[in-house]
Design a binder for these strands. Structure first.
Lengths: 275, 275
DNA sequence: AGCTCTTATGAATCATTGA
DNA sequence: GTCAATGATTCATAAGAGC
């Protein structure tokens, strides 16, 4: 059995990726610094220059990703001056022009989104997980993320609580209460392109709560054991941790030394390779 | 008490809307013919000319919508040649250029979406509900769509921990519990920008399944009784039916005579006005 | 273990105030 | 006037304590 490598490097992915050969990674999954959001910690990229900042880096992603590989980009545009900014839309168009195929857009539904109230909008409870590919023939292992129906129904009922059932039923006349009988007797089902995950509230030192279940899901879906996963904005190492736990090699890059230290702490020293 | 009017007209909204004055409607909500999707019934708009087809019509929407009004566009890009087509993204950018503010993007999560299996993608379980406005000051009645609150509120309010009185603010700066007294007596919460609605399976004759709960939700959110609602692609009349049920006047337009007939059947003749 | 109760806190946004 | 800092508002989840 091969040893799993977990590489963590501090620096700008634009430079560090130059060290890597073409067609090396099987999956690139990342949650880049959102425009202006982590201003104090990350340097804050202005929304108006976001695309221009991103493109040279995604060019390296395109070069180092295998033809059969997938690039998952978790991102959400913020509100600027009462409107949703369009930099994410422009980024998608620019990435296509760069040579990527825009295969799909998954929705991450954040069940416990940030609270708040404003006169003109509700709480933002979702983020985009954009799927890009180099070719139409990419690896995908749908069976790896199938949901056991029985367990799913059980845990979902437990997690939802009675209130949510009431809420669902009050929203629509039909729905939750009736459908639940349909789940009994089925074994497994394929998921859809909507993911229901809660954000993790335990991360105290890294403001970006990228729940581990999110990279885990995409790693299982798009890679096999022993494959190579890259997160060019790895933050406190959630992707590295997820990859390691699933027996995938990984490279994690971040420009903040403190984050890389935290990431290194998460992976056992005997299993990790530090440079 | 005033009589509610439910106007249904057959024709192209581009022409019919010329009859209406500026600043007339309080809400425009529609699910336009998706590119190429209803080819046999609607004439099928090619994805590559979708924006160009849409813009003259949205110009009429912009003209006839009140400054305090809202335009909700339910749409989802289809898969063309293995990729998500970009015409919806381009449409958003073009509408902004036309003078619209892109205030928000709601997600309609289709709980019981169409079953199916493909080698390279999962079932599509969501659609966009894009919110556009003419000005930053628009009407919004958030209380009209509040939902039952979670169980936690009950137990929490029994015993107010001392932490609730003075909360140690996180480094992000988000506070909670500064004014816990606001919570007393509350049993409802504001929703988020993710809507969980089941698709209706009863409408076999109209290919676009627009569940009645969807226009109902937005009508309650953005209009008052007696306001005017427009659906320029009304199909079999779901929006008209929803508006009538909520005591709102409405205008429904569709180019297919059969749809208008079906729509007319839904609304009681004594209450409707046909032209 | 399994349950209830308590507590911490999160990629937010807008209005207001101060420089 | 324009821009930056501060305050106000709000909900659901998970971890931990207690029994």
């Amino acid at each position: 059995m091969k040893t799993i490598e977990t590489v963590l490097k501090c620096g700008d992915c634009l430079e560090i990726l130059q060290e890597y050969p073409d067609n090396f990674f099987d999956l690139i999954i990342t949650s880049p610094p959102y425009a202006d959001c982590r201003e104090k910690t990350y340097g804050g990229i202005d929304p108006d220059v976001y695309v221009e900042w991103f493109l040279p880096r995604s060019e390296q992603f395109l070069r180092t990703l295998k033809p059969s590989g997938t690039f998952i980009l978790n991102i959400k545009e913020r509100v600027v001056n009462g409107e949703r900014h369009t930099y994410v839309l422009e980024l998608i168009l620019a990435l296509k022009k760069q040579g990527w195929l825009w295969t799909e857009e998954f929705i991450w539904h954040k069940k416990n989104c940030h609270p708040g109230k404003w006169p003109n909008r509700f709480r933002d409870a979702w983020e985009r997980c954009l799927q890009f590919n180099k070719s139409k023939k990419f690896k995908m292992f749908q069976e790896a993320v199938m949901v056991p129906m029985g367990d799913w129904a059980k845990t979902r009922l437990k997690n939802l609580g009675q209130n949510d059932i009431i809420r669902f039923n009050s929203r629509v006349g039909s729905g939750f209460g009736k459908n639940i009988s349909n789940w009994l007797g089925r074994d497994k089902a394929y998921p859809s392109n909507v993911l229901h995950l809660a954000t993790e509230t335990s991360n105290k030192n890294h403001s970006a709560t990228f729940p581990r279940a999110l990279p885990e899901w995409f790693i299982k879906l798009f890679t096999e054991e022993g494959d190579w996963v890259l997160d060019p904005f790895v933050g406190c190492g959630t992707t590295s941790e997820a990859a390691f736990g699933l027996n995938r090699n990984s490279v994690g890059i971040d420009i903040i030394p403190e984050y890389i230290e935290m990431a290194q702490d998460k992976v056992k020293p005997k299993d990790a390779v530090f440079f």
